[in-house]
Write a protein that binds this DNA or RNA. Sequence first.
DNA 1: TTAACATTGATACAATTTGCGACAATTAAT
DNA 2: ATTAATTGTCGCAAATTGTATCAATGTTAA
Lengths: 237, 237
Amino acid sequence: MHQLHHILIVDDARDIREPLAQYLKKNGFRATMAANAKEARQHLKETKFELVILDIMMPGEDGLQLCQWVSNNDGPPVILLTAVADDVSKVVGLEIGAEDYLTKPFNPRELLARIKIILRRFPKQDDTITPIQRKFAGMLHDPLHHKITRDNGTELELTTGESRLLSVLLDNPFKILDRSKLLDLVAGREPKAYDRAIDNTVSRLRKKIERDPKSPELIVTKWGGGYMLACDVETLL
Amino acid sequence: MHQLHHILIVDDARDIREPLAQYLKKNGFRATMAANAKEARQHLKETKFELVILDIMMPGEDGLQLCQWVSNNDGPPVILLTAVADDVSKVVGLEIGAEDYLTKPFNPRELLARIKIILRRFPKQDDTITPIQRKFAGMLHDPLHHKITRDNGTELELTTGESRLLSVLLDNPFKILDRSKLLDLVAGREPKAYDRAIDNTVSRLRKKIERDPKSPELIVTKWGGGYMLACDVETLL
DNA sequence: TTAACATTGATACAATTTGCGACAATTAAT
DNA sequence: ATTAATTGTCGCAAATTGTATCAATGTTAA
């Protein structure tokens, strides 16, 4: 199964936002919604998106500002939605870093076509593995071959999922990561109801790397919050 | 005996056209130049090309018209060159039948990469192969004769399928390629239900190039994701 | 403190995905 | 047309991941 493209929808109008997300999901995308620019920034910081669909007419921070911010920060391509056929806005929008625009009301199929064209132009940075090895707690993690070498030389095989989880934890030492975020970063999907998949992966990884899996010292549980890696991490060149 | 891919370059600017032809020839292609749309039509009638690189901003007949004509007449795939980052033109260009586009100034290596991708997508020609030799993990891959020469001098015969798979992997080191994409790039077809053809080719290639095929180090499995080449690749001129 | 509740850990099991040998189908060579 | 080589399909075992369940543990309210 291959990763779905993840699209962020930013629109204050729920009757646009939600049907649109539904439609995109039906057509093979992963969609996340934000009701305003602030929410959008939050999502963009936490998660990786391949495309942003952005209504420029929003209360509070203007959509155009957000668009500019996204493109200035090397973010994903942006499709603008405008409520009126305002030619000035269109031009400004494209000059501000947007890849395309649509005027509401729009044809969903046309939006779909434009999305596909743009995604083709911005080939998804497929899961490129950073071949970077890191040391932690007397162990060396090799994310390429998903295995660990201890200081005493013994080797330890990880599964793909365990290795990805470890990579995420090593990216965020001493930071509490909740299950939803971990699931996103490790498996690239959103949690379903009562989703305990991550707990399992944590448990399995603990069994392999903890000195005493019964009382974990590296991957500690933050009750009600998530998990945290509690050790220093050294990145090797 | 093999045949080089024949590429037609259409650009009125000599300082683009000629270095580009030179560069392509250096990299194992056959290149022909045209300074305008009329010349291009002439060439296209007389000779068979596997690819056209076309500047859309040209005097006289517009490049877009030529592009349309080529794709309408079941001609070779087209890569558009645009002088400015004109987003509208881009969209129109792709809708008009172009396979890809680049904005000038472009990175020659990026163009090369895109050329190879497109040529793989159009494998209808008989025996044409991107003739690029690359070194990896102490081995030299020769896609023309689909064989491998190890640093110690011993040689290794591959089947054409194995060689194509290796080429695709060498194109994307450290990237996870899912089965669908691999099948597309290697065999040029869509996967049918429960299609395991790629798994087999991977298995067969592993037996030939892995030190220990039981625990692969070069072609790594990413569970639920696909396969990945986990070694550096050096392209030889 | 204890009772009630929510969250987490551990185990078993189910579902999915992969490795690979065997064989069939296809393609190329003679 | 026969034969050989290559590629695709099938099937089963192994590996990996997800789900269900219950025990253990933390939290909150009386």
